[in-house]
Design a protein around this nucleic acid. Structure first.
Lengths: 118, 118
DNA sequence: ACATGAAATATCCACATCGGACATATCTGT
DNA sequence: ACAGATATGTCCGATGTGGATATTTCATGT
């Protein structure tokens, strides 16, 4: 399973894959492939989760309690699907990581790397 | 040397290490360890470049022309130091990556992941 | 009802990235 | 001259990623 060594809430940089998965689950309960699709849309196609990264990440994120399996949102749903939802710690970590990225973008702004565009 | 496979300007996500190195060089000509220090300050200690990542990244970034070696800024400088400066393509790539990160942060904001703080 | 293709989950492997250990050379201060 | 700090560089093990592949189950057309 290779449980991630760092659950340390202070340093804890989430992997890009983990971050995007959690972000996709903020306001929607989704299943594996639904998450992959959501992530792709969310990033304008920049981030494409292969099945390897996708299911490994889901397994590990569930193992450390940042998300959990959840019941299907609708009744007659495809029973093969496994739905996931964010946990409270998951949302915390997501927020931490988002702030970390925000600081990076701010640093780039301070150095005028992001020019204004039309 | 393992020249990076992707110099593709469209998709081109810079590695975190490469991004921070280029960012550190935006308004300062620095040498290797100086870059590592700058990156650590820039990220509030989040990102610490080990010598492996540092010198490997510098070599590869120079090889693909995103930065170049430059003369020492001051005269009586430690001759062991190798200074680096950004190239125009380097600044372009930096800007692209910064924008990519900005989009991610925006997505997080839209989903109200970043709560206001005091 | 049945065959066919799509959807969904899951595993395996090869590759890229990373950080620390280690090595070597040179500078600085006492 | 000596000791410790500074600086660059290489090597290796650990981690993260994506594609190929496998397997099962669902949905669709005839």
């Amino acid at each position: 399973m290779t449980i991630p060594a760092r659950i340390d809430p202070v340093t804890a940089p989430l992997t890009p894959a983990a971050f995007h998965i959690l972000l996709a689950l903020v306001d929607a309960r989704l299943h594996g492939l639904g998450i992959a699709d959501a992530v792709e849309q969310l990033t304008d196609g920049d981030m494409q989760l292969g099945p390897g990264t996708l299911y490994r990440s889901l397994k590990e994120l569930a193992a450390v309690g940042l998300l959990r399996e959840a019941a299907a949102p609708t009744a007659g749903d495809d029973p093969r699907r496994k739905y996931y939802e964010l946990t409270d710690p998951g949302r915390e970590q997501l927020e931490l990581e988002a702030r970390r990225l925000e600081r990076i973008v701010d640093a780039a702004r301070q150095r005028r790397v992001l020019q204004d565009e039309a």
